[in-house]
Amino acid sequence: MFETVAFYLFAVLVTVSFFIAVTTSQALYALTALASGMILISGFFFILDAEFLGAIQIIVYSGAVLALYAFGMMFFDTTREVKEKKGNRIIIASLSVLSVILVVLIFAAPVVSDNIVANYPVVEGIGNTEQVGIVLFTKYLVPFEVAAVMLLVAMIAGIVLAGKKMDVSLTLKDDSEINNEEKVLS
């Protein structure tokens, strides 16, 4: 009973937050809605006995990723309303709805669920975090290391791209001037 109530509550909240995030014209509203949606999603993970994943979700998404967005937004004028041309919303909405319905139909098809066998079954009596640790450092060790390297590369790339000539305002110059400077520097 508790689980059902929690599911529906979280489901409604997440959907609403994300909906706000994709429709609002204020960047700050969108960021806030996104952050709340992320934290609410971790609630699902806890319901599903994936405590480790839930913690990671809060730390990485709500902590790191959204903080990164927040810092990134300091470069842009966030108080200004985001001006967007209105595309044909009906086509876009109907396309999304159509794909959702199709995916749901496919999930509902009986062929999918019948043919799945567990590769790494959950062992009773051991905590989720411990299980994840065991699988991650045995079966998924190589992907884990690759992911670590990828994060390192992404970090360096982010620093190099964003930190280049922090002291110069590139916006006040023409493209040609910037290109000339870059040529001189290199």
Binding site: L95, S96, L98, S99, L102, V103, I106, A109, V111
Partner: peptide, 16 residues
């Protein structure tokens, strides 16, 4: 996305 929809329809048809 249009392509995705077409692929989904195809997958559904094959599944059926």
């Amino acid at each position: 996305v249009v392509g995705l929809v077409i692929l989904l329809i195809f997958a559904g048809a094959v599944g059926l």
